[in-house]
Write a protein that binds this DNA or RNA. Structure first.
Lengths: 339, 339
DNA sequence: CGCGATAATGACAGCGCAATCATTTTGTGC
DNA sequence: GCACAAAATGATTGCGCTGTCATTATCGCG
């Protein structure tokens, strides 16, 4: 339990390894970064010396000398939202075992904070960047365009700066809305929290579909700027039913909301799906285990993360080598018991 | 959509700012890092030059020269587990606006992977480290002890290396078990996934309490090495009831499991809490919104994160200044409808 | 006004590695 | 066995910043 002493460490350096192995420093550097161009004999000597001295490279020195760090920046709008924790897992699993570190920046759904983070990340000369939207500020977009590293924009399809991995969010919402219509529901509502630009666009897609079949009723659309949560889902359904008691289906912009709505329905002894259908969005693990099991538009969050990091690593390894630069991973409308 | 050009950037350096401001480089460095010791006049000149040139410091060069980076390492066993996403939020919110970056390492409940990450993180000369347990390998522990930076171990109380923030996990489980007993349940079970050392110890605490009042029955204890999830919670309850159908209460080692158990009970038309009580552990937001609302041992995850980063930043700023080096944040048994 | 004390500033070197280009060694074909 | 190409290795330099210590400006006080 003693306080730590802050003794100066005497870590071995490249030069130490070099003299121990009887080669020059640069040969050591090369055996580490590109073993292929070093002779079998030298490589063995160096590796032996590295192991014996317990050498680990100093990433700061490497970054300074090469003008590029081994950091990969990942910008997300939220750490709470389950959607991004799945993406995160995909990214981390893909970065596992490489020489790259992932550094997360949370811009809390603020484009201004995002711009600041872009600036901060770029000052680190990252090896690559993954950003969670196409909705940067003009300045943020300019910074990304000028960045000397590959960039993957995730979650959506659309006008990407460099590369992108996502799916058509609007088509996904439309699929949910059509599913409700096809199941015979005629008075569908929509609830959403945290109206960031993407949520706004999804609501637009819902309006389009319901308007097209004459079912659009603004009284059934309820949103709040608060962050999404199970509790908020319950509240939103409560308010929706107060305003439009004959609503017979509700499209939820998020799994949290759907679970909250489902619980609120249970509390009010509203039968799901007979009296009220609930359709969820994203389909986190929990959704399928609810009673009744939640129908949902399933989105490939984990795959987005792992594909994004894979593309980035490829492109970092060999710039220009990634030919499929814009990937649409699709989505799936999964009907379960709640509709 | 065009591919990015990889043009060499011509970022301004400290020296550029210095000559633009008519001072020496070191003065610029000081106005950035400790403005207090620079004269008003010089500071204004420098700040003006920084703004005019759009200068941003190069963290790699800084790290190399000062032998300490502005990275704070955060080691967690899982990115999936909601518990850690709350901790993460606390940490990120606390690091917001400082000059430090948080870098997450996920060791996937493997002490060996953790040891590797400790090594990797230390090679970056981090400003500080937050680690999620006291269960390092001997070598991992040695590395931490020798590390030239402050370290906070989180989640538990106990034999910490440098500083710690947590609560008494065993007392927390005992509180849950006693709560069930006090409510009159006599045949309590226990379900747990992912039996890491901490989960093992918590199970031990449950055994202690139930044995003390003659209610211990190993047939009612069910564990699995699989990761925790809502689905697993349902399965575990199913198996538990198959083995010991008269079980009248179940302590769940995690909110996921509790929700899964609750849903499984609903599926089987088992009345909660009349036929079966369910007590959860951690109390994520969702728990209180279930129907029936889940009783839970609430743990201060977010506070652990924010307190840990605060202690770390204090100690980095002024080594030795943190006097309360071992903080117990406590827990709370919250009785709701499910018991 | 002058002395010592303190605050403010600067010169210089070096942190550990990789880019560049020069040099040496090895391999190839006839 | 030789000329040549290709592979392997090395010497030097500098990335951008901060630590150290020396130097200069500023202040308080008798």
């Amino acid at each position: 339990m003693a306080r730590k002493s802050r003794a100066g460490s005497n870590r071995p350096t490249l030069a130490d390894v070099a003299s121990a192995a009887g080669v020059s420093a640069i040969t050591v550097s090369r055996t580490i970064r590109s073993p292929g161009i070093v002779s079998e004999k030298a490589r063995r000597k160096v590796q032996e010396a590295i192991a014996r001295l317990g050498y680990t490279p100093d990433p700061a020195a490497s970054a300074l000398a090469s003008r590029s760090s081994s950091t990969i920046g990942l910008l997300v709008p939220s750490l709470t939202n389950n959607v991004f924790s799945d993406v995160l897992r995909g990214v981390y699993d893909g970065a596992q075992g490489t020489r790259f570190f992932v550094q997360i920046g949370n811009y809390r759904y603020s484009a201004l904070e995002e711009e600041g983070l872009i600036r901060t990340f770029l000052s680190q000369r990252p090896a690559g960047l993954i950003v969670s939207s196409m909705d940067q500020t003009p300045e943020g977009r300019r910074l990304l365009q000028a960045a000397p590293c590959p960039i993957v924009q995730i979650m959506e399809t659309g006008d990407a700066i460099d590369m992108s991995v996502g799916f058509d969010q609007l088509a996904a919402v439309r699929a949910g809305a059509r599913h409700l219509r096809d199941r015979g529901y005629r008075r569908p509502g929509f609830i959403s929290a945290r109206m960031d630009p993407r949520a706004q666009r999804r609501l637009g897609a819902f309006r389009d579909v319901t308007a097209a079949c004459g079912q659009l009723d603004e009284a059934r659309i309820l949103t709040t700027p608060q962050p999404s949560s199970v509790g908020i889902g319950g509240h939103l359904l409560e308010q929706l039913l107060a305003r439009a008691p004959d609503t017979d289906a509700v499209m939820c912009n998020n799994d949290d909301l759907a679970v909250g709505a489902l619980m609120e329905a249970a509390r009010r002894h509203i039968k799901v799906p007979d009296q009220l259908a609930i359709c969820s969005y994203n389909d986190i693990e929990m959704a399928r285990h609810m009673v009744p099991a939640l129908s949902a538009v399933a989105t490939p969050r984990r795959e987005i993360g792992s594909r994004a990091i894979a593309m980035l690593l490829d492109e970092i390894g060999a710039p220009g080598s990634v030919t499929e630069r814009h990937v649409d991973l699709g989505f799936e409308m999964i009907a379960r018991e709640s509709t």
